[in-house]
Nucleic acid binder design. Structure first.
Lengths: 243, 243
DNA sequence: AGGTTTAATTGGTATAGACAACTAGTTCTT
DNA sequence: AAGAACTAGTTGTCTATACCAATTAAACCT
């Protein structure tokens, strides 16, 4: 019942943070709602109040909550920078657009890194990397082809099974690593014959090339993904706050 | 001697925070410098390490410091105001890529809003709007064509002169409005004949279509811009933090 | 009825200490 | 010479506790 696992390698405050964030995003906690008091969380999960406060403080800094001394802790009014959430996950991205995401695994291999891949992942040439090729579907229709490279020495024990569920979930929950930031480049291009075939378009049709590098807090690269989106079906959206 | 007064009603962590901030702003601590370890602050001022950490954490969140586990706490490099610079200003975007930006004004008109424009700017149809068409240059070469629509009732007194300098600067400095956030959509497309002519490419070449809406804090739309970039010369780049 | 005091509840500040995780050396082993 | 093991020093997480400050409502007085 408790969402908190004290034996997990993931910090307790972070587990609580994600849990509350999830409640807010699922709508079980609505803007203006008051949260149970810190002391209640502490007692309920048998953790220190200071640990609860660490989670709350994070969420306040991120704009999810605000506190009023003597009154309580409340869910903040709608966050504007919602655009930045879920951008690292195709699944979440599609859901937020009201589409049903799907996958079709083309291949799952363990290969030696090429020089390009090695430099993107900050590893050595010929180090082992997982190479995952997928077709991404939205409402059953092909939306993108995606090639993912992940260092096998960093992310151990990856299986086809895990890939079909959620790689991020595996990395965070099972390996206890936290993905911290991502860099993306977006460019316009023309489909080659292989991409055209998978996307059910004709060669030379416009496509959107999105390359994403994700990193841990210390800057270690976690993965390197190249996605080719159908330009007629996909529009990249983002919202940013100033400073 | 000590900057910390434990009997002051001002919280200790805040006193320490201000003290360190002052050192940074006076230049006694320079970007890249390592700070004395937390335990040293604690012992020196006879306060708890957790209190020192509270001050440090604040400063990290505000971008003054960054911590590396096992190494120390460092003064952050000059914060690149990543927020809107790359997003709202072509000029800054090009500079950060090491290119020399330039403009070529095609037209500057005051026109009645079409229904589309009106809805983007949250105004009524036929309300007056400025329409600014420009060619954006990088190192003298055409990089994008840009059409900008701004409500004339909100942003008064716009002139061709101002447009050739900086519209944002005028809005913020002369009108005292603060731009708060922006939303962008990015899509891949094919150049029409007019765009092709201005961009010196052939009709049907791939282009990147970027549409930007900028807003004040209260959600009032400030402008609505459509840019068409040469896909062979422009790559959209963005980094984002999780959490 | 209307103001005052009190108690309970909430978040805010601060302490002291323990152990984990990470970094950068040094030393030991092979 | 190369790698493994150790060590000292740093930030990261967490506990258990204490008291302060602000808010609210109930209890208590005029």
């Amino acid at each position: 019942m408790s969402m908190i696992n004290k034996n997990s390698p993931i910090p307790i405050y972070y587990q609580l943070e994600e849990h509350i964030k999830e409640l807010i995003e699922k709508g079980e906690l609505k803007p203006g709602d008051v949260l149970p008091p810190e002391r209640e969380y502490a007692e309920k999960h048998q953790i220190s109040r200071m640990t609860v406060r660490q989670a709350f403080t994070q969420l306040v800094n991120e704009g999810y909550l605000h506190r009023i001394q003597g009154k309580g802790t409340f869910v903040a009014e709608r966050k504007i920078e919602q655009g930045l959430q879920g951008l690292t996950s195709f699944t979440e991205d599609m859901k937020s657009r009201g589409l049903t995401p799907g996958n079709e695994l083309l291949s799952f291999k363990l290969i030696p890194a090429t020089l390009t891949i090695a430099s993107q992942l900050s590893i050595k040439e010929y180090d082992p990397v997982y190479e995952i090729k997928r077709i991404r579907l939205a409402d059953q229709l092909p939306m993108a082809v995606e090639v993912n490279h992940i260092s096998a020495n960093l992310i151990k024990g990856l299986t086809e099974q895990i890939v079909n569920q959620s790689i991020y979930h595996y990395i965070e929950e099972s390996l206890g690593m936290r993905i911290h930031h991502a860099a993306q480049t977006i460019e316009s291009s023309i489909a080659n014959s292989l991409e055209a075939k998978h996307l059910h378009i004709s060669t030379g049709s416009p496509v959107m090339l999105i390359q994403r590098n994700t990193f841990l807090k210390n800057g270690t690269p976690v993965e390197f993904v190249k996605s080719t989106y159908r330009a007629d079906r996909y529009k990249f959206m983002i919202t940013m706050n100033r400073s």
